[in-house]
Structure formats: C-alpha cells, structure tokens
C-alpha cells in the first residue's frame, strides 16, 4: 500500500475532527502516515492510532509554529522528498490551504483545494469539488508531482480502525526563508464549549434580523440545545454583533453540516455560497419572499424572537 501523508490539525495535541476524516479517507486510498507538528503528541497519539495512522512523523520543535505557515511547508517538503508518498492530504482550512500551496511550489506539484471527495481512478487521485457556492460539481486531477489535496471538513464520515501510530521523529533545519514572518503574540477569542464552525454537525446562524449583539443570545440558546456551532451572516458581522471567525459565506467560512438553521438571514448569494451544500437547511424569517426560502427543506415565516425561543424550549422539554 502506498503511503499517504496526512497533516494533523490540532491545538496542543487536541486533534481536530477533520484530521480523523482525512485519516479515514486516506485509509481507503493507501496507508496513512500522520504528520504531527508542534507540541502535544502524547495527547494526540491515541486518537491518531484509533483512526488508523500506521506511522506518525513527529516534529515538536517550537520553531515550527513560531512563524507563519512556511516552516510547516518546509517540513512536509522534506518528508515528500525522503518518503515519496502517493499523496499529501491537508484540511481545507485557511492555513491548511496555504501550507498545501507552498508545498506545491517547493515540490513542483499540483494542488487541489476544497475537495469534498477523493477517489483513485485508474491509479490517479481524482478530487470532487463543489464550486460556485455548490451550483456546479467538478472532478479534477493533479497532473504533475505529488498530488496535494486540501479536503473540506465534513466531507468524510470519520470511522475508527486501530493502527500502531508508531512515532518517527523528524528533524528539520529551517531555512532563513521560512522564518521571515514571526508570530509574536497569539490572541484567543474565548468560544466556550461550542464545536468548531466548519466541523460542526449542526450550525445555527443569525443575520440582520437578529438586530443586535445582545440578541444573539437567542441564537446561542438554540445552538446550545442542539449542540451546534453559531454562525453569522456578513451583515451581522459587519454590524459588529458577532466575531469575524463566525462569518458564513463568501469572504467567510464555507460550512457543510448535516443541519443548517438560518435565523433572520435573507439568503443573499454571498451567504448561500458558504452554506448551500448543507445536507438539511431550515430557516426562520419574517419575510416570506426572502431568497433563503428557495433553499430550505423546512421554513417558518415569522418573527424569529417568537419562533426560535419556542423551538429552544420545545427541544429542552423533549430531552
């Protein structure tokens, strides 16, 4: 079986769900080796083993995470040169895609981003991409070098299959070129216990109709009853009601959860571009003509401040 490198996304060893999805996908296409960069491997090891990483290349040097993106690409390039894997999979997050791009330049390879599926067709890796906000589906292949594929979160249901997760330490001497953009401070916005927006199975979003930052508590209450992440339309973010990290749509995040609940969101094309591929879509909006209703499986025309709290209460009652 040919080796497939999977770049692990984690926070101090807390492995993100998308990595488990990538390992699951890689197992179907070859033999996955995880690449763990940064601190916290001991914490991550069991999860990586559980989801089938036969081997884990570990690079714990603090230098690798003290600069923007470039060191990670340099480390991966070394692994690609040394081990000649059949493909490299990364998560299609902002940083994952940048690592993929720089790696592609370093190794003269092709890179495909935002894949929602990946298959081997006659020995070639063929990625499925959902483009133009989900209105078209394309299949693409890498035609030179090592295929580098950035896959969207929620593209593959993660399934465990135990493997050894054998630790292989990797040393890399960074070039000066990798150390040009120095991270001097990390500022973390507390997000509580809610799941990560792009990884969540359910997303509850609020838009212009919410009206103020304070009233987002109505959206958060429903999200918490459903175990959901909270999203926001650009109108709500631009008004300063919710942080930019939560923005769904063009110039924000693309999400593809099992369930998307749009509250007070009209459904402008910029928003739709970020949520149209959600499996089930429901909306609450007082305007019966709002374009969001063209997308929904179920829609309620009404005041969100009546409908959403009632729904929140009803779910609590049923638990």
């Amino acid at each position: 079986m040919s080796e497939i490198l999977v770049l692990v996304e984690h926070t101090d060893g807390d492995v993100k769900k998308v990595t488990l999805e990538l390992l699951t996908k890689a197992r179907a296409l070859g033999a996955p080796s995880a690449v763990f960069i940064g601190s916290g491997f001991e914490k991550a090891k069991d999860k990586l083993a559980e989801y089938g990483a036969a081997k884990v290349y570990v690079a714990e040097s603090a230098e690798l995470t003290g600069y923007v993106v470039a060191p990670k690409a340099e480390l991966l390039a070394k692994l690609v040169t040394d081990h000649e894997p059949a493909a490299v999979l990364v998560a299609a997050t902002a940083e994952g895609k940048e690592v993929a791009g720089r790696l592609a330049v370093k190794t003269s390879s092709g890179v495909l981003t935002d894949a929602v599926d990946l298959n081997l067709v006659d020995g070639a890796f063929v990625a499925e991409q959902s483009i133009f906000g989900g209105s078209s589906i394309v299949h693409s292949a890498v035609t030179a070098g090592t295929p580098i594929i950035a896959m969207r979160p929620n593209a593959t249901p993660p399934a465990p299959e135990a493997a050894a997760a054998e630790r292989v330490d990797v040393e890399v001497t960074l070039t000066e070129a990798a150390k040009l953009a120095r991270v001097v401070e990390k500022v973390v916005v507390p997000k509580g216990d809610r799941p990560e927006l792009t990884e969540a199975a359910i997303v509850v979003s609020g838009g212009r109709g919410v009206g103020s930052a304070e009233k987002f508590s109505v959206i958060e209450a429903l999200a918490d009853q459903l175990g959901a992440a909270v999203g926001a339309s650009r109108a709500a973010v631009d008004s300063g009601w919710y942080p930019h990290q939560s923005q769904v749509g063009q110039t924000g995040k693309t999400v593809s959860p099992q369930l998307y609940v749009a509250c007070g969101i009209s459904g402008a094309i910029q928003h739709r571009a970020g949520m149209q591929t959600s499996k089930t879509i429901v909306a609450v909006n007082k305007d019966a003509e709002a374009p969001i209703f063209e997308l929904v499986d179920y829609g309620v025309v009404g005041d969100l401040f009546a409908v959403v709290p009632q729904a929140t209460e009803e779910i609590a009652k049923r638990k």
């Binding site: 879509i281 429901v282 929904v296 499986d297 179920y298 309620v300 025309v301 409908v307 009632q310």
Partner: peptide, 14 residues
C-alpha cells in the same frame, strides 16, 4: 421544501 407561516406554534412545528 415545506414553508409554513407562524400562527403561534411555529417553533414547535419546527
């Protein structure tokens, strides 16, 4: 999809 108007019970129906 199905679109309903809230007649006071929209949250429960949802």
């Amino acid at each position: 999809g199905t679109i309903v108007s809230d007649e006071g019970n929209g949250g429960v129906e949802l």
